[in-house]
Design a protein around this nucleic acid. Structure first.
Length: 358
DNA sequence: AAAGCGTGGAA
DNA sequence: TTTCCAAGCTT
């Protein structure tokens, strides 16, 4: 959809982007879409977009550098070992992204000749690519016009138009408004400019309107309270769940398990735990019946939808191998186990306790 | 279609 | 300290 509003927004925004764009490892210089074998080519754009889902740029950069050094292209990633992929992602969160990334790379190799498809519709069929990521890749990596809407764009557009309808009901209207200001050329730069603007100028709190290239037509700015937008529905309180983590040691090793493929922390190496529930489960779910010693410390961790408070139970074990899938991992190398942060922190507490194997 | 899904930066 | 929320996707 081409239109007349676009130049009022797109032209000054693109001029600002040409002068102020951040230098990022996956970003081509402003002005032209990345060639297929470019350092900012489709593989790196895809990888960066998935890593950036709900994750800030500064957090992503070191993961992106490590990842691309290990797996520089679709072919190498498609051939990668699943466990190593999950370890490389450990600490970044939302682990379904890593599982889907691997599925996606294999699908690209098996079904698309080793090249990422260049249309939104085809991109949407690849695991881990949704509406936002498909549009972003089509625009940024392939130079297509696509309507790219992420959280930054939602905030910028809601302020530009001073939209009163609360999130998330307003999403379709914001998408339509974004369509109306997206230019026919340089849609990828436009999208990145909107996101740069949202993260650096049009911030959730204390937006820097004096530095904003599109403050002129901004309705929220004219009202004098841009931070009021986007209007949001009231949010729910996060419940507390309680559990126990188990630190079972044998000589200088600790017993680690792998969590089920689906669900919370799916597919990740982990300390054994019991159930996480409203009431403390004590030693329910212990890997073996042993003389468990409960540490004075507890481990707490905030997840998206609940707060976890875990008791820490330690025991030495000289008996048979515990039942179920698992491995005795050298405690000295625990940091190379690829544990999610919630377990990595607990492991540190166990080792500082020093009572068992630490 | 509402809920499940991690972690850390910033104020 | 708490609170918000970040380049969302899946079921």
């Amino acid at each position: 959809m081409s239109n007349k509003v676009s130049p009022q927004i797109a032209a000054p925004l693109l001029a600002w982007y040409d002068a102020e764009a951040r230098v990022l490892p996956w970003r081509a210089p402003p002005g032209s879409p990345a060639p297929a074998n470019d350092p900012a080519g489709p593989y790196r754009v895809w990888l960066s977009e998935v890593m950036l889902q709900q994750t800030q740029v500064a957090t992503v950069i070191p993961y992106f550098e490590r990842w691309t050094a290990r797996w520089p292209d679709f072919a190498s990633l498609a051939a990668a070992d699943d466990a190593e992929v999950m370890s490389m992602w450990a600490g970044l969160g939302y682990y379904a992204r890593a599982r889907n990334l691997l599925k996606g790379a294999r699908a690209v190799v098996a079904e698309h000749g080793g090249r990422l498809p260049d249309t939104e519709a085809a991109l949407l069929t690849i695991p881990g690519i949704g509406a936002y990521t498909a549009a972003a890749i089509a625009a940024i990596a392939f130079g297509r016009r696509a309507v790219v809407v992420d959280g930054n764009v939602e905030r910028v557009v809601a302020r530009l138009l001073a939209i009163e309808t609360p999130m998330p009901a307003v999403k379709p209207a914001i998408r339509a408004a974004t369509d109306s200001i997206t230019p026919d050329v340089r849609a990828g730069d436009f999208a990145q400019a909107m996101m740069d603007l949202g993260s650096r100028i049009c911030t959730p709190r204390n937006p820097k309107c004096l530095l904003c290239p599109i403050a002129g037509p901004c309705a929220a700015r004219m009202e004098g309270a841009p931070e009021r937008y986007p209007v949001k529905a009231a949010k729910k309180v996060r419940p507390v769940r309680r559990g126990t983590m188990f630190w079972l040691t044998h000589e200088d090793r600790v017993w680690l398990v792998r969590r089920p493929e689906k669900g919370l922390l799916g597919g990740m190496r982990a300390l054994p735990t019991g159930p996480w529930q409203d009431t403390p489960p004590a030693l329910t779910g212990a890997p073996v019946a042993a003389d468990w010693r409960v540490l004075p410390a507890t481990a707490t961790h905030g997840f998206t939808h609940f707060e976890l408070v875990c008791a820490l139970a330690a025991a030495r074990w000289d008996g048979h191998t515990p039942p179920g899938e698992g491995e005795w991992w050298p405690i000295a190398d625990i940091e190379s186990a690829g544990l999610p942060t919630v377990f990595a922190r607990a492991a540190k507490l166990f080792r500082e306790d020093g009572g068992c194997g630490g």
